[in-house]
Amino acid sequence: MHSSTSNFERPIPAQPWRGIAVLVVIVTLLCAIAWEVRCRTVGYGPTLNDTEDLWAQARRRLKPGSVVIIGDSRAWFDSDLDELERGLGSRPVQLAQPGSCAFPVLEDLANDEAFHGTIVCSIVPRMFFAPGGPLVENARKAVKRFHTQTLAQRASHLLAVPLEEHVAFLKERDLTTEALLKELPIPNRPGALVPPRTPPYFQTVDRERRARMTASCAHPGRLQTRVKMGWARLFTPRHHQITFRGRWLRSVPGRRSKRVFATRTRP
């Protein structure tokens, strides 16, 4: 028999809880639907979030002889997996991450004794040789998630994928409370070292981590101008590099041997 040392019971506030709960469910659902309609009206559509879990899922697809793309946003946006598959004979795995240093991923692949495939690495010197900071951390976090992902994290990711594929307002990058607050036009103190605002939504991501530019951004207009201007402070236009990469992609189909390609772009 237990010796009861406590007969504690929490008080329950007297309220018509059943009616309140029904109303809460209905109003919350209506608000969510209204927000979804609003998001779609301004051009957003369902897309996966490029999370560490999605990266880990892609990393798990890696076979010993796979072709793998690593690097920064250039490799992420500019690699057409269908085209590469036609040329290379096998479908590459997309592991490039926007705004990241490829080195931690390269290191991880080099340490993977089972892997003997081909690595296509996009190198922007200031990113690849970054001594530390967010550029390196982004990549390290993804690698760490791959090695330490728990069953619960995997399950959450599996549940999130179908939801994100159908609900537009789940776009983490632009439509969460934090992202919306960042959009408020509030001037900063003179001299404050505040990072510049990054431009909004311009890509969708699928289960293979393929990034595709949305139609509203691919065509000239307000969003495209905003995106261009947003990045102008950090990067110069790269028209000549796009040409270079185009030439390089055309030369790939004829090759059979495994090699590492490094694409050099100027900051």
């Binding site: 959450s156 983490e172 409370t177």
Partner: peptide, 11 residues
Amino acid sequence: AGAIILTQGNS
């Protein structure tokens, strides 16, 4: 509840 839904993904 609305704020939590709007802040999703931040786990």
